[in-house]
Design a protein around this nucleic acid. Structure first.
Lengths: 231, 231
DNA sequence: CAATTGACTATACGCGCGTATAGTTTCATA
DNA sequence: TATGAAACTATACGCGCGTATAGTCAATTG
């Protein structure tokens, strides 16, 4: 009961523009989305967009800020509610973020929304703390590394939701899809792909032979492999 | 002899354009990338791009086809080599696809490159077949569903490589980063987050109360939650 | 040696975009 | 009612883009 949004009904024009931008950016991407289209969806003139947000980039930043605030609030809320396990958190955040999912996906892949990702990692770390307490062997790597990887992997599902839905034969955002997804996640998270012994063995091999070039590594080398500067 | 291409070596202008496009599309996104910029990187005139690929969209499709062909060849190669486990495959494909990773990420998130994703799922399914043989309890869901989810989760890491690198404190494409990543993956894949008993219990709860609305589900409902038409 | 064909360039057109600016309405306050 | 600011609209400009077209050059072929 954190009474957040005053009323979805009489939203101010500024908020309507922001929501329309979230939608358009998510559906068409930042470049392809047009101020005119966003203004049209929001029911205002294109000029008003500029009046409120200064520029297209400003509008984007406002969208990012809004989402970060929303995720942060969601996390705080869940954090105080101890009934959630890691699994149900994943499911809950999947549901909560659903409307913004496409926007989120694009932003994250483009390297933006960093604080949002980090927020999720911190969340994962907290749960890992509990899980690690019940664990016998010491982990191979630090908790933060595992939390980071776990977060990225969990995000892979909504990020690729079109492909996942196609592969599962059901829209993962529909009730049935969500149910199937939850079952599958429970199965995956409760059944290791390899045994700890095998893993330890492979780690040993890894430490002894750090130079493990695959046959493909030699073959797949195109024009400019080493350049990735950010936008 | 129809030898239009004097050499299969990737030195023809057409190949250079394709490589430049892979790079530009990956770095700037499809919309933002310009034919002029691609032509410049390839060292040709913008007109030649059109001459060879017809249009910008045609160029994109050529890039997709090329990548699919490359992944397929990689898979075939690995498939015949039985020394690979699921884990090392993930690592190997991570290395092989590295130069195309940014392009891949954008394409996949935009819903394109579907056959590529499906190819990977098929690969995962084959390995799951072996793993399932050693498993006592029956899986909660079909193998394909688990393979699909596993693929999406594995892809989440390179998709979010900037965030993952930041969280791990090391570039995951550097040798050290790759090593740390492999260790972490081995740990995650060998240590379940929850016990099978807990999972079974949660599934039970899931089946009995299919309507599990979270507090956030009620709160986070923006303008148009139910619309997601594809491009 | 023409003659044809394909690789490649130079140049320009038209359109849609972000942006700028001037003008109009709404509304709180005195 | 007067007034000033803020919300909002109408209109236009300029630029960069994809695309189209005409032309040049090099290699192949009879």
């Amino acid at each position: 009961m954190v009474a957040t949004q005053p009323d979805p009904e009489d939203l101010t024009a500024r908020a309507r523009i922001r929501d329309a931008a979230l939608q358009h950016f998510g559906e068409h991407g930042f470049e392809r989305a047009t101020i005119r289209g966003i203004a049209d969806t929001a029911g205002v003139s294109p000029g008003l967009v500029r009046h409120h947000f200064g520029s297209k980039q400003g509008l984007r930043e406002a969208c990012d800020d809004y989402l970060v605030k929303m995720v942060r609030r969601f996390n705080d809320q869940v954090r105080t509610d101890t009934q959630y396990s890691d699994l149900t958190y994943v499911a809950a955040s999947r549901a909560a973020l659903k409307p913004y999912q496409r926007y989120l996906a694009r932003a994250l892949v483009e390297g933006a929304a960093a604080s949002l990702f980090d927020e999720m990692v911190k969340m994962s770390e907290e749960w890992l703390t509990d899980i690690d307490a019940k664990r016998s062997e010491p982990p191979f790597v630090s908790r933060k590394v595992r939390a980071t990887l776990g977060t990225a992997m969990a995000l892979g599902v909504p990020l690729l939701y079109q492909h996942v839905s196609r592969g599962m034969g059901v829209d993962i955002f529909s009730p049935e899809g969500d149910r199937l997804l939850s079952r599958a996640m429970l199965d995956i998270y409760s059944h290791p792909l390899i045994s700890p012994e095998e893993a330890a063995m492979l780690i040993d091999a890894l430490d002894k032979a750090p130079d493990r070039a695959t046959p493909a590594e030699r073959e797949a080398t195109p024009g400019r492999p080493e350049e990735h500067h950010d936008d």
